[in-house]
Design a protein around this nucleic acid. Sequence first.
RNA 1: GCCCCAGUAGCUCAGUGGACAGAGCGACCGCCUCCUAAGCGGUAGGCCGCAGGUUCGACUCCUGCCUGGGGCACCA
Length: 544
Amino acid sequence: MSGPLSDLREAVVAASGAVAGSAGGSSAPPTLERPKKAGFGDYATNAAMLLAPRAGVPPRDVAGRLADELEQRLGPSLERVEIAGPGFLNLFLSDPWYIDALAHVLAAGDAFGAGSADPAERVSVEFVSANPTGPMTAAGGRHAAYGDSLARLLAFAGHDVTREFYINDIGGQVRRLGESIQARARGEAVPEGGYEGDYVLEIAERIPGAASDDVAVVAERGVQLLLERIRRSMEAIGVEFDVWFSEGSLHAGEPSAVRHAFEELASRGQTYRSEGALWLRTSAHGDDKDRVLERSSGEHTYFASDIAYHLNKLERGFDRLIDVWGADHHGYVGRMHAAFESLGAPKGALELIIMQFVNLIERGELVSISKRRGDFVTLDELLDQIGVDAARFFMLQRSHDTMVDLDLDLAREQSNENPVYYVQYAHARIASILKKAAATRVSAALDVAARFDGALEPAERTLVKKLLAFPDELAEATERRAPHRIAAYALELAQTFTAFYRDCQVVGAQGDGVEAFRLALSVATKRTIARALDLLGVSAPEQM
RNA sequence: GCCCCAGUAGCUCAGUGGACAGAGCGACCGCCUCCUAAGCGGUAGGCCGCAGGUUCGACUCCUGCCUGGGGCACCA
């Protein structure tokens, strides 16, 4: 990838190489970062400090030689370079460099920041996968927002992404759901360990014969109805799954997918029988102990289904499987990785991402969430109260491995102060500026901005730098599966634009080419904000 | 007992080896003849849980401990 920043980085690396020369040996690549303090240059590098120990020379001496090299290599792009502190090189770039950098951003168009995937892979992202024994909870919304945003990031990077929802539509919990529905239909108390939420009664009323039919049939109908509801909730939060995968389907057909998986594992010598059950040697792959696949009763465990499911995904040709799981599944990670290896799959191709909990807060108190007791806030309620954009941004602001507290009253109260509106407002404000300038002037500006030869304001340089940071920010957010970094970036970009808006009149700006340059800068910012919001699944309104 | 996550400003959280640790909210003071005040400027507010270690340099890496949350099934 080429661009103003990678050119800079290359120059630093090349200069390092030249100075290192006979000293030989390579160390960690030098950093190129945007210093926090304005006085420390536009970009700073620690190259001299990395080189110093090898050369056996004080860092500041090395820095001096590096500075000379950089001045030669960068020519007029470099205004000046300073040696500071323990041996940092602070680079001050010239206005032509900034003008050229903006032209680069504009030329990249909608693809600005895209395509960091190397290599591009076929990736399956499985997330939410909520049990169809109740409505989507607000906590499920966090999984939805996270998984979907991660999928968007991966796709934008160039991967071929499939979003999957795994439906646990068989097993004890489904039977309990059926029993609970039937009990409600008969006007009886829900059995011990059953589902007590009001939705069970609603479901019961929608199933003709719920009171008398076979409980398995009632359960199946119940799952169907709840699944429809879950689909609608997913649509409401803007998540579209490519595949809804039924656990039950893994047990159908001859041989079933589960049987096929068992055979695959057996042929690899990974299973054995003991105490009447079929076991998998997960302890041979780092798990604490071996695990049961087929119970002594002849029934398959959930684990057996899951192995068959992952084998199925491998056989569909995915290079990488990403599962987003709740924190309560953490104990399951070791055995899943072990099973994956037992199938002969490459170790690193399975990523299990653990999402920390969403705590429900009521009147300042932590409420224990229980789907069984019907004690939860639904995703639909949350969306009704604060809307999709605020909900998604709220959920995506935090890293997936920190807990989130959700106080619905507070969320409603504070939704007006949700930072998402600040970002959207910046976008709408730019739209308003561009509208005022009229389309013809804007498109003309895009043509001539690269030839601007005036002096730039500090706010303009800061904004260009912020835009240039987007590709790296994106690549890091994608690689680290951390969409919350994009939320933070979007907010910072909006702030940076707002500072520019305050300091620099755009429409009607005085000076030759100044208005055109600022219009072009506004266009680039608007696109980048829209892109960042899109990757979060948040809308970018033209007006507010 | 073992495993995972967290502990940073009053609150909610960013910050995976660099210079003086940041944002939002909350508090206080000020700002609309001017491209959107859902905005802007300023002020106050920090033993980065504790103790060691590694490093030229540690909120960041390592070890131990403390606190909170979660997990350790022939449940799903």
